[in-house]
Simulated scan of single mutants.
Amino acid sequence: MPEVLTAPLVVEFPFTRSLGPVQSAFLTGLRERTVLGVTCQDGRVLVPPVEYDPVTAEELSHLVEVAPTGTVTTWAWNPGPRRGQPLRTPFAWVLVRLDGADSALLHALDAPGPDAVRTGMRVRIRWAAERTGAITDIACFEPSDDAPPATAPVPHDGEFADPVTGITAPARLDYTYAPGRAQSRYLRALADRRTVGERCPACRKVYVP
């Protein structure tokens, strides 16, 4: 049987989207080192904020500021960071419930090894040195000894100077492509400086490739 042909293939493009008022306030807040959540009808505070209640589908707009510290609710160790991930050294993916929030935020935790990570550990945000209004304005989380603050979330009007109104995020898919029988014959023929096609059994037309 002929060897199966394979080849690496990369599909990459920028994904550009506009932001509604809630997402705009959240990302602009990160640029200003402020973490905003949104309050649901039942009083839950969601971070990251969403524009519609996931339970009732009601539109949400009541923003509150939460603390930059929180608690790890679950985690997984990443021993080999890949292109585009937050850190270049091994790290933990963590879900962090920030103080004042009722939902968890997914991000990276900078830790020396899996033995240094546990559910329930206290962490804090490490802000990026240069911030532009993106989730990457949070460089990562780092371990913290800070106790949970006694104060409740603080109402916030979501107003900032020069708000972020849109984002462009790179999308990239790396995979290995394996052609089928007909394409494999076509590619092998090209290697021999020949061009082959395949005749359709119904219409009798010859298609190349």
Results as ranks from 00 to 15, higher is better:
residue 7 A to S: 09
residue 126 R to T: 08
residue 110 D to C: 07
residue 81 P to F: 09
residue 84 G to Q: 08
residue 79 P to C: 13
residue 164 V to I: 10
residue 197 G to V: 08
residue 137 D to R: 05
residue 87 L to W: 05
residue 192 D to K: 12
residue 111 A to R: 01
residue 84 G to N: 12
residue 82 R to Y: 08
residue 37 G to F: 13
residue 190 L to R: 12
residue 174 D to Y: 11
residue 144 S to C: 11
residue 138 I to W: 05
residue 168 T to S: 11
residue 65 E to F: 02
residue 172 R to F: 06
residue 20 G to F: 05
residue 31 R to M: 10
residue 44 R to A: 03
residue 38 V to F: 03
residue 132 T to R: 14
residue 61 S to E: 10
residue 79 P to I: 13
residue 98 L to D: 00
residue 196 V to T: 11
residue 114 P to V: 12
residue 141 F to W: 05
residue 189 A to G: 08
residue 58 E to C: 04
residue 163 P to M: 07
residue 149 P to S: 09
residue 161 A to S: 15
residue 119 T to I: 10
residue 191 A to G: 09
residue 59 E to D: 01
residue 21 P to W: 01
residue 138 I to S: 03
residue 70 G to M: 06
residue 118 R to I: 05
residue 20 G to P: 00
residue 94 V to W: 04
residue 127 W to I: 02
residue 23 Q to M: 13
residue 202 A to S: 06
residue 115 D to A: 15
residue 1 M to R: 07
residue 55 V to S: 10
residue 108 A to Q: 02
residue 93 W to D: 07
residue 159 E to A: 13
residue 102 D to I: 01
residue 29 G to C: 09
residue 115 D to T: 07
residue 180 G to A: 11
residue 2 P to Q: 15
residue 48 P to C: 11
residue 166 G to M: 07
residue 14 P to R: 12
residue 109 L to K: 01
residue 144 S to I: 11
residue 141 F to V: 04
residue 53 D to W: 05
residue 101 A to N: 06
residue 78 N to C: 14
residue 19 L to H: 06
residue 199 R to G: 06
residue 107 H to V: 10
residue 136 T to F: 04
residue 64 V to W: 04
residue 18 S to Q: 10
residue 174 D to F: 11
residue 170 P to E: 12
residue 49 P to T: 00
residue 152 A to W: 03
residue 197 G to E: 03
residue 20 G to Y: 02
residue 35 V to T: 10
residue 92 A to H: 00
residue 140 C to A: 13
residue 56 T to H: 04
residue 201 P to F: 03
residue 153 P to I: 05
residue 136 T to E: 13
residue 23 Q to V: 02
residue 123 V to M: 08
residue 13 F to N: 05
residue 63 L to R: 05
residue 26 F to A: 02
residue 10 V to Q: 09
residue 17 R to W: 00
residue 81 P to G: 04
residue 80 G to H: 13
residue 43 G to Y: 15
residue 193 R to N: 15
residue 96 V to I: 04
residue 64 V to H: 04
residue 176 T to W: 05
residue 24 S to H: 00
residue 97 R to S: 02
residue 202 A to R: 08
residue 131 R to D: 04
residue 46 L to S: 01
residue 26 F to D: 02
residue 96 V to C: 04
residue 18 S to C: 01
residue 32 E to T: 05
residue 153 P to G: 03
residue 188 R to P: 01
residue 161 A to N: 12
residue 102 D to G: 06
residue 177 Y to A: 14
residue 48 P to V: 11
residue 202 A to K: 03
residue 58 E to H: 08
residue 80 G to L: 15
residue 149 P to R: 11
residue 176 T to R: 12
residue 90 P to S: 13
residue 170 P to M: 14
residue 207 Y to E: 12
residue 129 A to H: 10
residue 101 A to M: 05
residue 88 R to D: 14
residue 166 G to E: 14
residue 109 L to E: 01
residue 145 D to S: 15
residue 114 P to K: 09
residue 26 F to I: 07
